[in-house]
């Protein structure tokens, strides 16, 4: 398919068809690229000038009439840590079960189907269920902990999927070798299987962090909209606070402070760029190993 020029001997109608569609394809591709570049460029150009040290390192003060997003940054961090701490054992465990333990193909199919289903449920529904189950039934109130637990269910599919992908790349001979030397199954998983799929697990974590950072609808009713500093990790877990995305929404829609909202958007954008880059990097390492 080297020579892609249109044969001049083709009838005019076919030549027209070819030209027009080729133009449409190029047009759409260029449009998409322009869209990405202008979206990101616009956010950074409008947001970065509004970022100052004071904004990043303080909390909102009515007395000084200053705005700071430090509480939101900390809340985001806390929720990421809490959610990952809980979801990692569960998600990796589920993937290990699917790949190493499960014998019944039917159960595996059901589990995989429900995992896919979880990935497709919109975040607002997670928000509602999280509110009813964690905040009300388990009486955790509107707190970072409720938010983190809600996010655990949400990012479970991501962790399961990436871990499973990388478990599949561990050669069968490793397992046979370990078991042949007399290792028990758990010992084999602990010392051979998990260490050799660590980059898959890390990729899953990075993708999960991306989702947590961008999430807003699920956190609105579970983690709340507080903009005050909550203190250390464990005290913060019990308090209600907004993550960066939720704070963006509050500043843009409820306070009408678009400058601050764009500054938060720029911070989010930088985080997303870093996360995407890291995931790409790890992903390509994973592929090379295969």
């Amino acid at each position: 398919m080297e020579d892609r020029r249109i044969d001049q001997r083709l009838p005019a109608r076919r030549r027209m068809y070819d030209r027009v569609l080729r133009f449409v394809i190029w047009g759409c591709a260029v449009l998409c690229i322009l869209l990405v570049v202008s979206l990101i460029g616009y956010i950074l150009i409008r947001g970065l000038p509004n970022i100052s040290w004071q904004l990043l390192s303080s909390q909102e003060s009515y007395l000084n009439k200053t705005i700071g997003i430090l509480p939101s940054i900390l809340n985001t961090l806390y929720i990421i840590i809490a959610a990952l701490l809980i979801v990692l054992p569960l998600g990796v465990g589920a993937a290990v079960y699917l790949n190493e333990y499960a014998k019944s193909g039917r159960l595996v199919r059901i589990i995989e189907f429900t995992t896919e289903t979880l990935a497709g449920i919109p975040s607002i529904i997670y928000g509602l269920v999280g509110m009813m189950f964690f905040c009300q039934l388990l009486s955790l109130k509107t707190s970072l902990l409720s938010g983190a637990l809600t996010l655990v269910i949400m990012i479970l599919p991501t962790i399961v999927r990436t871990t499973q992908e990388s478990l599949k790349t561990v050669p069968e001979s490793y397992r046979e070798g370990a078991l042949g030397l007399g290792a028990t199954k758990w010992y084999m998983i602990r010392t051979i299987i998990l260490p050799s799929c660590i980059d898959g697990i890390v990729t899953g974590c990075i993708l999960a962090i991306g989702r947590i950072v961008g999430e807003s609808a699920a956190l609105l009713f579970t983690a709340g909209m507080g903009l005050k500093l909550l203190g250390g990790f464990f005290t913060a877990m019990g308090g209600s606070g907004a993550t960066l995305s939720v704070a963006l929404y509050i500043y843009a829609m409820e306070r009408g402070k678009f400058d601050v909202a764009f500054a938060v958007a720029a911070v989010l954008m930088v985080i997303v760029l870093v996360i995407n880059f890291a995931a790409k990097q790890l992903g390509s390492r994973l592929k090379n190993k295969r």
């Binding site: 990405v36 979206l39 961008g214 999430e215 807003s216 609808a217």
Partner: peptide, 13 residues
């Protein structure tokens, strides 16, 4: 990257 942009950022723009 488009998939990674948070929905509130789309909303803001």
């Amino acid at each position: 990257l488009l998939a990674g942009i948070p929905s509130v950022v789309y909303g803001l723009i």
